[in-house]
C-alpha cells in the first residue's frame, strides 16, 4: 500500500466523525435559520426574515458587547502573557517545568468552579477579599461584581492560559542568536521586539489570539456569574431565543452570524500558519 493511500485511510475516521459532528450540525443550523420564525420543522420553503430581524430588532448591543469584550480580552491576555511567556522561557530547568505545570492546572478546573471562586473572592461584605480587608485592616471596599469590569476581569482570568501556552510555543521559536545579532547590529530593546521577536513568535501569537478571541465571542458563563444584569452577551441572547422565546429559527440565524464572525477571523489567520512547524518543536 502506498503511504499516500495509507494516510488517506487513517484520516477517514476522524474526517467522517467531524463531518457528522461538526459540519452537519452547522449545516442544520444554517437551514433552520432560513425557516419561518417560531416554527420547529425543517421544510423546503426558505426565508430571510430572521436575518432581517437580526439586524433590526435590537440584537446589536449583545453582538457589540461580545465582540468588544473578545477584542479587549484578547489584547489584555496578550499583554499579560507576552512577558510571562518570555520569563518562563528564560527560566531553565526544573523550576520552569514546575511553574509551567502550575499555570496549566487551572485549565483543567471547570470554568464554573473558577468563576464561582472569583465571585466568592470579589463578593461585597462577606466576600474573601472584602471580608479579609475588613477583618485585618478595618477597610471597607466596594465591589466590581455585577459590573462590566467584573465580567472583563473574569474573561481575562479564564482565558489567560489559552493565550499563554500557544505563546510559549511561539517564544520558543525565537533563537537567542537572532536576538543577539539584532542587538549587535544596533537594534534597541523595542526594535528587537518589533523587528525580530514578534515576527518570529507570530505563529504562536496568532494561535493564542484566535483561541482567546473565539472562546470569548462565545463566552456567557462570565457574564452570567460575574455580570449579574450588567451586560447581555450574544450567546445569552441566542439561548433565550431557544428556551424562553421558543423561536428556533431566530436563534439559528443569530448563531449563523456568530459562526460568520468566527469564520471571518479564523480562516485568514489559520491559512497563514504552518501547523507542522509549530507542533514539531
Amino acid at each position: 500500500m502506498s503511504p499516500g493511500r495509507t494516510g488517506y485511510l487513517f484520516a477517514l475516521p476522524v474526517a467522517l466523525f467531524l463531518l457528522a459532528g461538526f459540519a452537519t450540525p452547522i449545516g442544520i443550523v444554517a437551514w433552520y435559520s432560513l425557516m419561518e420564525p417560531r416554527t420547529f420543522a425543517l421544510t423546503a420553503e426558505t426565508t430571510l426574515t430572521n436575518y432581517r430581524a437580526a439586524f433590526t430588532e435590537g440584537y446589536g448591543p449583545p453582538f457589540f458587547w461580545s465582540i468588544t469584550g473578545a477584542v479587549a480580552t484578547t489584547l489584555a491576555c496578550a499583554l499579560l502573557a507576552w512577558p510571562t511567556a518570555k520569563m518562563l522561557h528564560q527560566l531553565a530547568g526544573r523550576g520552569a517545568a514546575v511553574l509551567t505545570g502550575l499555570i496549566a492546572v487551572p485549565i483543567f478546573v471547570s470554568e464554573s468552579v473558577r468563576l464561582f471562586g472569583m465571585s466568592l473572592f470579589l463578593m461585597p461584605g462577606g466576600g474573601i477579599l472584602a471580608g479579609s480587608l475588613r477583618a485585618l485592616f478595618d477597610v471597607n471596599i466596594g465591589t466590581v461584581l455585577n459590573t462590566k469590569l467584573g465580567v472583563f476581569l473574569g474573561m481575562v482570568y479564564v482565558h489567560f492560559p489559552f493565550m499563554l501556552f500557544p505563546l510559549l510555543l511561539g517564544v520558543a521559536l525565537i533563537p537567542q542568536d537572532r536576538r543577539d545579532a539584532a542587538r549587535d547590529l544596533g537594534a534597541s530593546r523595542w526594535q528587537i521586539l518589533r523587528e525580530v521577536e514578534l515576527p518570529l513568535a507570530m505563529p504562536g501569537l496568532i494561535i493564542g489570539a484566535l483561541l482567546t478571541f473565539v472562546l470569548c465571542v462565545g463566552a456567557n458563563a462570565e457574564a452570567a456569574i460575574l455580570g449579574g444584569q450588567a451586560i447581555s452577551v450574544v450567546t445569552r441572547a441566542i439561548e433565550q431565543r431557544f428556551s424562553y422565546a421558543q423561536d428556533w429559527p431566530m436563534g439559528a440565524a443569530l448563531t449563523m452570524l456568530v459562526v460568520a464572525v468566527t469564520a471571518l477571523v479564523v480562516f485568514p489567520a489559520l491559512a497563514r500558519i504552518d501547523l507542522n512547524k509549530l507542533i514539531r518543536r
Binding site: 442544520i28 450567546t235 431557544f242 456568530v258
Partner: peptide, 22 residues
C-alpha cells in the same frame, strides 16, 4: 490538518446549540 483543528477554534456554546438542533 486545518479541518481537524477547526472545531478547536469554534465557540463552544454555539457548537452546543448547533448540536442540540442537530
Amino acid at each position: 490538518q486545518k479541518a481537524v483543528v477547526l472545531p478547536i477554534f469554534f465557540p463552544q456554546p454555539v457548537l452546543g446549540l448547533a448540536l442540540l438542533m442537530f
